[in-house]
Simulated scan of single mutants.
Amino acid sequence: MIFMGHSAPAPTSTHRKLVIVVLGLAALITTMLCAFALPSLHSGPHHVPIGVTGTQQAAQDLQRTLDSDTWDVDVYASTSELKAAIEDQDVVGGLALQPGKLDVYTATAGAPSATGAVTALGDTLAADRHVAATVHDLVPFTADDPRGSGLTAALMPMIFGGIFPALILSGVFPGHRGLRTRLAGAVLFSLVAGVAVAAVLQFATHSIGGDYWMNAFGVVLGMTAMSTTLLGLQALLRMGGFAFGGALMMLLGNPLSGLATGPHWLPSGWATLGQLLPPGAAGSLLRTNAFFDGATAGFPALVLTGWIILGVALALIADRRGRRSPQAPSESVVVRQSTPADPQPAPVASGR
């Protein structure tokens, strides 16, 4: 009898794996620190787009005065054009110079932190000109949630709505044979959970407005993007891929989403990266659908669709590779070999 099984890993292989795990965890913690700490340390207005209007000379003088790393200033021909630009999310706020007064226009629901900065800027300019400043919030949060707490809190359910299905479905339907079932389950879960989350935000907490089905579509698209990406990474790279995807969504995508402050409150590079990751794109899509009639929905929807395509593509690659790979051997195989030393069966004598 010869018993063939998996031998214990060589010490060199064990040490190599240990080093890889330790270095990977150290890199993960370092990335998490950078993602949370650096944007916070350098948070503030960074190239915040605002508009100004008034007499041509006054508006152009104000544009030259304010244009800097803090403000990107555009001049508008009239107050109505400035207000339309704010409602279309071309700018986050604006200043209208009028004889004897200064009107400050904001959109709190679009950029909560930048709104405070624009208001403070208007107060400073009004004091310098010895005129009164009047603030007009064109796009506020809802009356039941004036600080937008519900919108900010919605990001975590969307992130976990992408991580949990990928994790649970991988355990219930493991291996190559369960890959397509996992993908179908993730999409189905996103549909059900997205509709439910949007309903709670709109009808239970009254934190968002707008068209309910557009809001639900944004949440569904965000959850689908995260869950399919995680499933694709897990199918192709196993648990290492899942860990990388989870860190990407939670440790990098969450702090860089800008959902609580608006993306313009983060340093430019971090803000751009955050909007290209699923959490940031999902938050921006929900914001614009809920408060701006989908004025800038195209870009975040395109980003989320791209992540869905990436996740499905990774899963298809893993599926094709799984079909080509031979059947894995069992952990222990018993092989019977005949040797010359084996005793031969004795002949059976015939009875008479």
Rank of each mutant, 00 (worst) to 15 (best):
I2Q: 14
F3V: 09
F3W: 07
T12H: 11
S13W: 00
T14R: 15
R16S: 12
V19C: 03
L23C: 13
A26Y: 00
A27I: 13
L28M: 14
C34T: 14
C34I: 15
A37L: 15
S40E: 13
H42V: 07
S43V: 05
P45V: 13
V48N: 01
I50T: 05
G51Y: 02
T53W: 07
T53L: 06
T53Y: 09
T55P: 07
A59N: 01
Q63P: 04
W71D: 02
W71N: 06
V75R: 09
I86A: 09
E87N: 14
E87D: 10
Q89L: 10
Q89A: 13
D90A: 13
V91L: 01
G93E: 02
G94V: 06
P99V: 10
K101C: 04
D103C: 02
T106A: 04
G110T: 11
G110W: 02
A111E: 14
S113P: 02
G116T: 10
G116F: 03
V118P: 10
L121S: 08
D123M: 09
T124V: 07
A126R: 04
V131N: 10
V131W: 04
T134D: 08
V135F: 04
H136T: 15
D137H: 06
V139P: 00
S149K: 03
A153V: 08
M156I: 14
M158K: 06
I159L: 12
G161M: 03
G161H: 10
I163E: 08
F164N: 06
I168D: 01
L169F: 08
P174R: 12
P174A: 15
R177E: 13
R177A: 15
L183Q: 13
A184D: 01
A186R: 02
A186N: 05
L188C: 11
G194C: 10
V195D: 01
A199E: 01
L201Y: 01
T205W: 03
T205E: 03
H206L: 00
G209D: 08
N215A: 15
A216N: 06
A216D: 02
F217P: 00
G218N: 06
V220W: 12
V220P: 02
T224H: 05
T228N: 05
T229A: 08
L230D: 01
L230I: 07
L236K: 12
L237D: 01
R238D: 06
F244K: 07
M249E: 13
G253A: 09
L256H: 05
L259G: 03
A260G: 10
S268P: 06
S268L: 09
G269W: 01
L273W: 07
L273Y: 04
Q275R: 11
P279R: 09
P279G: 11
A281E: 05
A281R: 07
G283R: 03
D293P: 03
L302H: 02
L302T: 15
T305E: 04
I308H: 04
I308P: 14
I309C: 09
G311N: 06
G311V: 06
A313C: 09
I317A: 14
I317D: 04
R324K: 11
R324Y: 00
Q327R: 14
Q327M: 15
A328T: 12
E331V: 14
S332G: 10
V334P: 03
Q337G: 12
A349I: 00
S350V: 08
